[in-house]
Write a protein that binds this DNA or RNA. Structure first.
Lengths: 336, 336
DNA sequence: CTGAAAGCGCTTACAG
DNA sequence: CTGAAAGCGCTTACAG
């Protein structure tokens, strides 16, 4: 492998000059530049990223920390992150935490010693101490969904509460009169906020009861189990709002197994807008977040921060959108 | 950030000694070792990975090149790769190629200059020249599914031909008498081999016709379109073998939209065994590859190669397994 | 506009 | 068992 020294020798200049044309900074005479570029061509020279990183204090690497890449929501986010990163010349390192605090700690340490230029957190276990530590280590940070309390940091998130209310209004509008909720883990901001949105939207109704709420761990299995319990407990339920699409998918499957027509007898709506909502028959109505946009925006913000743009430590809230499809009444023919 | 120098000073030894205890190589007196470890503790010292990489010629980084992380098959693979890598102290860099040769070339260059310790290719566009180049650059390589012709390299793959035949046999066993095939891109090994397996299994039947084969691009959309065409062209089809699960999922959706009972009138089977095959009702029968195992095995082999273990450039073939579930006849109650 | 030199934070023979 | 020193391949003030 050719080094910058070889190029310098061949072009009969100093390594400093080669470095200048390489990075396009500092003045360099046009002819000199051409000589250097020819040498680079000839030697097929490619700069060593590590040496560059060590000398220049930049690695052009981003760490993406998420619970599980095989969860379709996060793989869509990851795709967006990598696309944008690639556009700006950054490389993405993948970290699966399984929402396990220990694993997350390990990764934070590992990424710190790798001197990643920035971190993107889409995991729920980030604590205030971690944020502080990263600040101290001078590693820019963008958090998805949830900021630890009392520490300033950049957050990109969706309007969960509003989305939940949108879901309930849609179910009411399409004739539902007894609406249950399958909720996600209450340690997560998304799980909690959507549950609160549901409660706020329905608690004034005479039919409201806490027994209309059932946890589903944000998973397909959890959604199936929750739907089964709910229908057993309240056979007159005619609408279900699931806190994410995975649980809604599980609920749909269970309802179909039980022979309960969707949306004929029970309307069903999820939250997130992952691609999978389109693979079932009927297609799943959902409150869609702009998943790709969230990942892309977060990455752009992170890169800006890395490149020294002063950003307020604010929260970027993304709009959510009702996708009325086959699984809610009046939309059986929609989305085809 | 403390450096190795700070540690050396505090422990009153040389940096060489610190390096030795850090890497646990070379002799070092027990008491000295303890002194050093205490200093490390005190200073909260963490070695700089880049400096280590530059000096030691190792980055402990693996590049994972795949078409698209948001494809569930690849996100399952990625999860396995990262798990194993993490276990051995390696970090994984993500590269989405969209099966685009240009993007792939770019990534190969970028990863080369980053001096990744090894590459895992799960993309179909790898060419013989690339393999040779990586060999020359001394970057160990493991390929998933497909090896370019005429160049030695390590390949991990599944028994596609055999799997296709297993699928056809299952359809025949459960009473199908006219079986169609939705096939994947013929530039891919998987797409091609499964199509060949299908042809070999059915061509001796009197009902066989080339018009029973329809391309579906390995996608849900493609699967839907293909299923529609097939049923229009041959309304008497009573079994469909799709070359992957995504296309099978698309076919299932289309059949349900058309009001064609599955498996009542048409039995359906996919290939891959992704998790999504369980979310539909009926669940999808499929020829399962051990996806996680494939990713894990490939990563272990790659790490062995990196660590200097001599490996034959052979092909590791994984077994496939018939998962008979609700979408094929006689299994309507299976898998619940 | 260009070069010499120091330095980034490690590892690794080589002496001792 | 331990240290001095060279070197990994770059960048970046500092002179000129």
């Amino acid at each position: 492998m050719a080094t910058i020294r070889d190029v310098a020798k061949l072009a009969a200049v100093s390594v400093a000059t080669v470095s200048r044309v390489l990075n396009n900074n500092g003045y360099v005479n046009k002819e000199t530049k051409e000589k250097v570029q020819q040498a680079i061509q000839l030697l097929q020279y490619e700069p060593n990223t590590m040496a560059k990183g060590l000398a220049g204090k930049k690695t052009e690497t981003l760490a993406l920390v998420l619970p599980d890449i095989s969860n379709p929501f996060f793989s869509e986010v990851a795709r967006a992150v990598e696309d944008v990163a690639q556009l700006y010349g950054y490389t993405v390192v993948l970290c699966n935490t399984d929402s396990d605090t220990d694993k997350e700690q390990t990764y934070i340490q590992v990424m710190k010693r790798r001197y990643v230029d920035g971190m993107l957190f889409a995991s729920n276990t980030l604590r205030a101490a971690d944020v502080l530590m990263l600040n101290k280590a001078n590693i820019p940070l963008v958090v998805l969904d949830r900021a630890p309390a009392n520490v300033p940091c950049l957050v990109v998130r969706s309007k969960n509460n509003e989305g939940a209310k949108l879901a309930i209004r849609h179910l009411l509008d399409t004739g539902c009169r007894r609406i249950a909720h399958i909720y996600g883990p209450q340690e997560t901001a998304t799980g909690k906020e959507r549950l609160i949105g549901y409660e706020e939207a329905v608690r004034s109704f005479p039919w409201y009861s806490p027994t209309l709420m059932e946890p589903g761990q944000f998973s397909i299995q959890g959604g199936m189990a929750a739907a089964e319990k709910l229908m057993e407990r309240h056979p007159d339920i005619d609408g279900i709002f699931a806190g994410n699409d995975l649980m809604a998918l599980g609920a749909l499957k269970k309802l179909q197994q039980l022979g309960i027509p969707v949306p004929g007898r029970v309307s069903l709506i999820g939250f997130d807008g992952i691609e999978l909502t389109r693979i079932t028959e009927p297609e799943l109505s959902t409150i869609a977040q702009p998943i790709y946009e969230i990942g892309a925006t977060a990455t752009r913000l992170l890169i800006k921060k890395i490149e020294g743009v002063q950003l307020e430590n604010e929260t970027y809230e993304c709009e959510v959108e009702l996708m009325a499809r086959g699984s809610t009444r009046g939309n059986a023919e929609a989305g085809r």
